[in-house]
Design a protein around this nucleic acid. Structure first.
Lengths: 343, 343
DNA sequence: TCCCGATGTGTAATCGTTTACAGCATGAAC
DNA sequence: GTTCATGCTGTAAACGATTACACATCGGGA
């Protein structure tokens, strides 16, 4: 008779509320959700009982019935990189505002792990999956999409914001013009490795193009395995003190900037006198550094909230309210780390 | 007859697999989970069908039956503060390793929001809730605990790591001794406001105590509404250039450091010549800053993984494996931002 | 031969919700 | 006095999984 699954500890369920309020579970559900008929009297009694017992409808049961988990998955390429934090925050806030909850999954820069994480999110039946960056295995993702997973890829070709491409390109142009104006004609564009994600590729291309346009020779530099300031410093020194010296380095990722700055100081390269410096990505530290760093700033937080709000509107079947164009602002912020090139 | 709930799009369920494999759903479940009997033949057929159809057991259904959601909630006091990122990452990694998934909830420094978020996590029936920092409304939390929510409070009195208190106190002592050795006798301990969370209170007390012990006068400074570098700079200048000058400032929170540094430079206070600087919390930027910042570093990532692994062992009913003591390491890292005090 | 344990399988109950449906008042319109 | 719409309620059927139980089947001792 007793085919008991382990009885959940002290969780009050809808039946408890129904009993306490002297109505049926159906009425409780209707009264609390506001859908369907319910007399004022019933509403009052249910509200009272529910509050008194501290009832919260259990998500698993609800999800099972409604096929909506009120859950948004967020796949982050690598949580170790703080760039993703504002994005995560944006998604969380938008979700929060509409009663959704966020499940984060870190792929840790591993394709295998990414797949595992995708499987998990799929198994969770998240209502939608938001990509914080480019996925490593597009094919796998597409399979899950076909299996019913709703995916939002902000970087994708028909993603929520194709504006972005143009705005970041624009900012990059400003940056390059700025450099050209100050007499720079040879610069290094430093990245960790060959650009993988869409953003990185886009950015890399934009730098190359813009530089060509204003007559600057842009030398792409891949750091590869080099992780030590001294090591990187030697390499940078080679560039800066060669016959045809590089007079500015552009850093392709915010998280890379500290390493580059340490490298320069290890090599005794003075910023900005001997070599200017610009980086993609802004932060309090970039502004606090002396000299204050010139940066290309984008508002990832705003971007994330915009995307997520839009997404949720779709999920909830509202009209998908036009996205705020301001959310995609990308701008070049000149500060003190780039100076006139030494001739 | 057709009392249809909205049919889920293209999701393959256990029945589909059972049909494809020519067995019953019970067998599928047994074969996949490995619990209970299943012939090798059945296992093979089920595995094949399952793989071919891309079957992933739906979490809501499973949770409903097993009363385990394989989900860990993480309540973050304020996602805007990057301190919490390593912690989040640690929790996520440990969870990931054991098949759990993490739901993050940001309280955004608001008590109201914190309560709402707690309700949501409770409604999600997370298997456990980990607190990334001190909760604002302990009473509310306790109510949910009584209602069946399992809460892990790393800062709590009988939290997983009381060691921590002593280790951080130890590091703080080193810091103060370091300052005393270099001849400092008056310092400022700067925080955003009156310390709220346990960590902040503990730290504040530790600084005061350690200073007294080595004969340093520690002046607590609350920034309050001051947010502008100039404003803060004036205040700092007042302290540093008074009759009885403060010769070092200790920054109580990593995220506060950039502001303080900008303030100093705005006020023309040279670090470390005119005034030394130390901060709690380490980062690439702190090391890249010139002068490189002396810091008190703690490994929040290791801490989080340790706590979470321990937690999951409990959840899964394993022996809760003793936690790695190294996980709670807190150490003072002297670098270049503190120099001998000007007499 | 008969019984018994071990192994494998299917049927059906169950988890906590939501909701289609039927039933029952009540009151208005004929 | 029928009819009918309207409002409200309860009963019971899902949702997708796990699992207790009953029922095989099989091999080996007695």
């Amino acid at each position: 008779m007793n085919r008991e699954p382990p009885k959940r500890q002290g969780h009050v369920d809808i039946r408890d509320v129904a009993r306490a309020a002297g109505v049926s579970t159906a009425t409780v559900s209707r009264a609390l959700s506001g859908r369907g008929y319910a007399s004022d009297d019933a509403r009052r009694k249910v509200a009272a009982a529910s509050r008194r017992l501290g009832y919260q409808p259990a998500a698993p049961g609800r999800s099972l019935r409604t096929t909506r988990s009120m859950t948004i998955g967020l796949l982050v390429p690598d949580l170790a990189d703080p760039v993703y934090l504002p994005f995560l925050r944006g998604v969380e806030h938008a979700a929060q505002q509409h009663g959704y909850v966020v499940v984060v999954a870190d792929a840790r820069s591993s394709t295998t792990l990414e797949r595992r994480q995708l499987d998990r999110l799929y198994a969770q039946r998240v209502d939608a999956l938001v990509l914080a960056g480019s996925p490593r295995d597009r094919a796998y993702l597409r399979r899950l999409q076909r299996a019913g997973l709703m995916v939002v890829d902000p970087e994708g070709p028909n993603g929520p914001s194709d504006i972005r491409r143009t705005t970041e390109a624009h900012a990059t142009t400003s940056l390059c013009e700025h450099l050209a104006d100050l007499g720079h004609s040879r610069i290094a564009y430093v990245t960790r490795g060959a650009p993988r994600g869409r953003t990185a590729q886009r950015r890399s291309r934009a730098v190359i193009d813009s530089c060509r346009k204003v007559g600057i020779a842009a030398k792409p530099v891949l750091l590869g395995a080099r992780r030590e300031p001294d090591d990187v410093g030697d390499m940078l020194a080679g560039l800066v003190r060669s016959r045809k010296p590089v007079t500015a380095v552009v850093c392709g990722a915010h998280s890379l900037a500290p390493l580059l700055l340490r490298a320069k100081s290890a090599a005794g390269i003075h910023v900005p006198d001997e070599c200017s410096f610009v980086t993609y990505g802004d932060s309090d530290w970039a502004a606090a550094y002396r000299p204050a760093l010139s940066v290309v700033r984008r508002d990832l937080y705003a971007r994330a909230t915009a995307i997520t709000t839009h997404l949720i509107a779709q999920l909830d079947g509202h009209d998908p309210h036009v996205t705020d164009p301001d959310a995609h602002r990308v701008e070049f912020v000149p500060r003190d780390s780039v100076a006139r090139a030494r001739s």
